[in-house]
Deep mutational scan, measured.
Amino acid sequence: DRMTSQEAACFPDIISGPQQTQKVFLFIRNRTLQLWLDNPKIQLTFEATLQQLEAPYNSDTVLVHRVHSYLERHGLINF
């Protein structure tokens, strides 16, 4: 699994950072998509996403918020 070119453009700090940071991003992105796909008729809020993310992935709330906002803005969740 890899970041898309659009994700890389929107998250230059992640793509240029350590490999582990990219893996954390990918986990948060994929898990958020999975959470929404589990029940697409219900809006997936940032707060609900954060509550359902497993530790330690829920510890970087800023990154979780950025990923959630990106997915929502680009019509990948909550459409």
Rank of each mutant, 00 (worst) to 15 (best):
Q22L: 13
R2I: 15
L44Q: 02
I28N: 04
E47Y: 08
S69K: 10
G17V: 03
N58E: 05
N39A: 09
L53P: 00
L76T: 04
P12D: 08
T32I: 15
W36H: 09
Q6M: 08
T32W: 02
S5T: 12
T61D: 09
W36T: 04
V24Y: 08
N58G: 13
I15S: 12
A9L: 13
C10F: 12
T45Y: 04
R31S: 09
K41F: 09
N39L: 04
A8V: 12
Q6W: 07
R29I: 01
L63T: 05
G17D: 05
W36N: 04
Y70I: 01
Q34I: 05
D1S: 07
Q20D: 09
Q34T: 08
H74V: 14
I28T: 03
F25P: 00
A55I: 08
H74A: 13
A55Q: 06
I77E: 02
L26H: 07
L50Y: 08
Q51P: 04
R66L: 03
L50K: 05
R2T: 09
T32L: 13
G75S: 10
Y57T: 04
R2A: 05
G75R: 11
F46Y: 10
T32F: 05
H68E: 01
L26E: 08
F27C: 12
I15D: 07
E54K: 11
G75L: 05
P18S: 14
Q51T: 12
F11G: 04
F11T: 03
E47C: 07
Y70C: 05
R66F: 03
N58S: 10
I28M: 03
E54A: 09
Y57P: 02
L37Q: 12
F27R: 13
I14T: 02
L76G: 05
R73N: 07
D60E: 09
I14P: 01
S69D: 14
L33V: 11
S59C: 11
L44R: 03
Q20E: 14
L37Y: 12
K41D: 13
I42Y: 09
C10E: 15
R2V: 04
A55L: 06
S5C: 13
A9N: 14
R29M: 06
D1N: 11
V62E: 15
L44A: 03
L63P: 00
V64H: 03
T61Y: 08
I28P: 01
Q43N: 08
L50E: 05
S69G: 13
E54F: 06
M3D: 01
L37T: 14
G75I: 03
L63E: 04
V24L: 13
L63N: 01
I42N: 11
F27G: 14
K41V: 11
P12A: 09
I14R: 02
V62L: 12
P18L: 08
S16P: 03
L26A: 10
L37W: 10
L26C: 15
I28C: 05
D60W: 09
S59G: 11
D60H: 07
P40T: 12
V24R: 13
Y70L: 01
D1R: 03
E54N: 05
N39C: 10
S5A: 13
Q22I: 14
L63V: 03
M3R: 02
E54S: 12
Q22S: 06
T4N: 12
D1F: 14
P40H: 08
F11Q: 01
L37F: 14
I28D: 00
G75Q: 10
S5H: 14
T49C: 13
E54G: 14
G75A: 09
V67G: 01
I77P: 02
P56R: 04
F25R: 00
A48P: 01
R29A: 01
Q51F: 09
V62H: 13
L76K: 13
H65W: 10
F46P: 14
P40V: 06
N58P: 04
L53M: 08
V24N: 10
H65Q: 15
S5N: 08
V24M: 15
F25T: 02
Q51S: 13
N78Q: 02
D38H: 10
P12M: 04
L53S: 01
I77H: 04
E72A: 12
T4R: 04
T61H: 09
T61G: 10
D1G: 08
M3T: 02
I77C: 00
T49F: 04
Q19F: 08
